[in-house]
Design a protein around this nucleic acid. Structure first.
Lengths: 203, 203
DNA sequence: TCGACTGTGGCAGTCTCTGCCACGTTCGGC
DNA sequence: GCCGAACGTGGCAGAGACTGCCACAGTCGA
């Protein structure tokens, strides 16, 4: 029962989670998030309400839970950037993880509608912003280590890593909204690029 | 029944709202947001649960509702900045409205504890971030008009105003968190200054 | 085969929030 | 001063998210 093999138990759990999430997402896109009850989702997957809550801590998590899984990938991507690259550029490339996630074949058609549900449902959007904030905490830690490794550590109370990260994530959201506003026509990556090109670190 | 005089009805309504909010804030700081029920607040103010919900759309709004009132002041402050001032500087001065709000005599002691409740209660923090996002929409509109007035309008699809605003608000939150992390010791305004000094528009 | 473990459903209960209705008070016109 | 209208309020029932608890069934190793 190693950690890497994940074990049968954990694998089936993930499978059921995925099944619930996919069924729920269809309903959310069809009827909207608030007009879909947990009972609807339970009925659609043939389970009881009680069991749905065994797989997801809340209704919100059914939609937003997947972002918890990307955090590690984003940190890994950030860590993989060359040490002498500018922070802003590295952060930009870290977001490529989100871009490629949106382009994963299979649920490609669902990405834009789900995105829209998140951005148009106040409760979901608020939860999303909060998750981004948690991501920023992890990113800041990574930036501090990165500077340490480069032999140019930040001062303990230097707000720069926090501010840069916050600004970058702000640009990310601005880019996402611009992309959604364009009806999902243009390139997601381009939208982020253009937003992040207008702001940057003070020399 | 003019709009400026506010009318007796609206004035008493505001008074009751204020009374509820103050009583609730005390309870929130004492026991925490989640461990305080609407019934507790109703009991503390001698009203019924039903009436509390007539004054506030939700439990969250009791804490976060006041931010809706500041938006207009912030926009006015932004509009009052000289036309030839840099956007980033103008945004920074717009935040002074929040700073002076935190220094309003009377509830000065409550500002830091309430701030802490907001930042430490996930549901409240998420709601706060969402309100900031709505503020940004209004700020962007103002920036577009400002550029228009200056004779240098942005292109219709230029992400710059959105990205700049998002970055500025990101710095605001970073500053607030730094201020809270320091135990509310340092100056709120300084924390924002230092965060916003590390980022800025690309020339 | 037996016993421990796990997943599941159902039930009761809490809490937020809403719609509805009935009551008392207040206010404007007469 | 009188009466109808408008308003604020409380209580009640109910939806919906979420939790704790218990009982039941299947599964797996000893």
């Amino acid at each position: 029962m190693s950690e890497m093999q994940l074990g049968l138990r954990e694998r089936t759990r993930r499978a059921v989670q995925r099944e619930i999430a996919e069924a729920a997402n269809v309903l959310f896109v069809e009827r909207g998030f608030e007009r879909t009850t947990i009972d609807d989702i339970a009925a659609a997957t043939g389970m009881s309400q009680r069991s749905v809550f065994r797989y997801f801590a809340s209704k919100e998590e059914i939609v937003l839970g997947k972002f918890d899984l990307v955090v590690d990938d984003m940190l890994a991507a950030l860590r993989a950037r060359p040490a002498d690259e500018g922070v802003w550029t590295s952060l930009r490339h870290m977001f490529d993880v989100l871009v490629s996630l949106a382009q994963t074949p299979g649920h490609e058609q669902m990405v834009e509608p789900i995105h829209r549900v998140v951005f148009e449902t106040p409760a979901l959007f608020a939860g999303y912003l909060q998750k981004l904030q948690r991501m920023q905490d992890a990113v800041v830690v990574e930036l501090l280590e990165r500077a340490e490794r480069a032999g140019e550590p930040y001062d303990a109370d230097d707000p720069a890593p926090h501010a840069l990260t916050a600004a970058a994530f702000g640009c990310l959201v601005a880019g996402q909204r611009a992309w959604l506003a364009s009806g999902g026509q243009g390139s997601f990556a381009d939208a982020i690029d253009r937003a992040m090109a207008t702001v940057g670190p003070r020399t």
